[in-house]
Design a protein around this nucleic acid. Structure first.
Lengths: 165, 165
DNA sequence: TCAATACCATTTGTATACCAACGAATGTGA
DNA sequence: TCACATTCGTTGGTATACAAATGGTATTGA
């Protein structure tokens, strides 16, 4: 690690500020901000890496489509919006995902006899078979995503992510 | 928490399998798979929450646009693709982001005198001013995203995410 | 019962995100 | 010098993701 000249010697911001600032931060935020250390950037990069591993190991479906199919197989017949809530997709997003799953005959829609607004989504035989066939690969993808971490670190990461909600 | 009937009593999968499987997993992967425990799903949900906090606290730019502008202010004049690499965006993505920043006069493009393929991206005065103005909010967003965690947990999470690449 | 409210599914519009392909320019090695 | 590969920026296509608006339906409360 080479010697780092501190920002305070490089950036004249702290000197050239005769008046008080309009926000609540004591130091020069622009100088302190490091993109590579922000949690949002690290989350985005980790997600990108995961999705890359996913598509390499499971090309039949996207990660989102697999999530919807898996949850639907887990829950059984579910309305479209309810499936969206269970998979963290808003109504507009789950619509597109469900459409693409239906176009491939992995899912069908049945009108709800009680509530005429609703349509149940139901996995087809082909959908259940594909899920059963791919579940192993999906588990392997999770393992591979966490491969850089030790067993204890994996557990820690998952619990911290869950805690962040 | 009401009593939960264990899956083994509901799902006949473990009983109804007379032959060996075609893949390497000893148990019924489809029955073992829980979307809510997979790292990819947890990463997606954490990112969603972060982006929601971001847009609530900083509506002038998207998180991606702010990331590109911040990195450009940090690096100085940079070719478009190089900025994309520095911010984890591929060539097609950074193109759109740079176009939108240029449309708002936060960034300009200058031809590279040595390499006629390249254009330098350079933050304008307005771009630097906006970055300086918003950097504090961006730091606050990171803090708020990590708010459910203790100080020690925050540090742990960031280092584990960084370790995952 | 009826009006206000909430929910369901859909549509439109914008913004990432990535793949694949492309022409132009640059770099390389023999 | 010249074929080859690489890089740069762009384009077209597909797939999330979310905001906002809409029409239809259901629920609720006075």
């Amino acid at each position: 690690m080479p010697f780092q000249i501190p920002d305070s010697l490089i950036l004249p911001a702290l000197i050239e500020r005769p008046f008080s600032m309009h926000y609540d931060f004591s130091d020069d935020d622009a100088a302190r901000y490091r993109l590579d250390e922000q949690v949002g950037f690290l989350l985005r990069k980790a997600s990108q890496r995961h999705l890359s591993i996913f598509s390499q190991n499971l090309s039949a479906l996207t990660a989102t489509q697999f999530a919807a199919l898996a949850k639907l197989c887990e829950l059984g017949p579910t309305s479209q919006n309810a499936l969206g809530r269970a998979t963290a997709m808003d109504a507009a997003t789950i619509k597109g995902v469900a459409d693409r799953l239906r176009a491939r005959d992995l899912v069908t829609a049945e009108p709800d006899p009680v509530d005429r607004r609703r349509h149940y989504l139901i996995p087809t035989e082909a959908g259940r078979a594909l899920y059963a066939e791919l579940a192993g690969a999906a588990l392997k993808i999770s393992t591979e995503t966490l491969a850089p971490l030790s067993d204890k670190e994996r557990e820690t990461l998952l619990s911290l992510l869950a805690k962040m909600g």
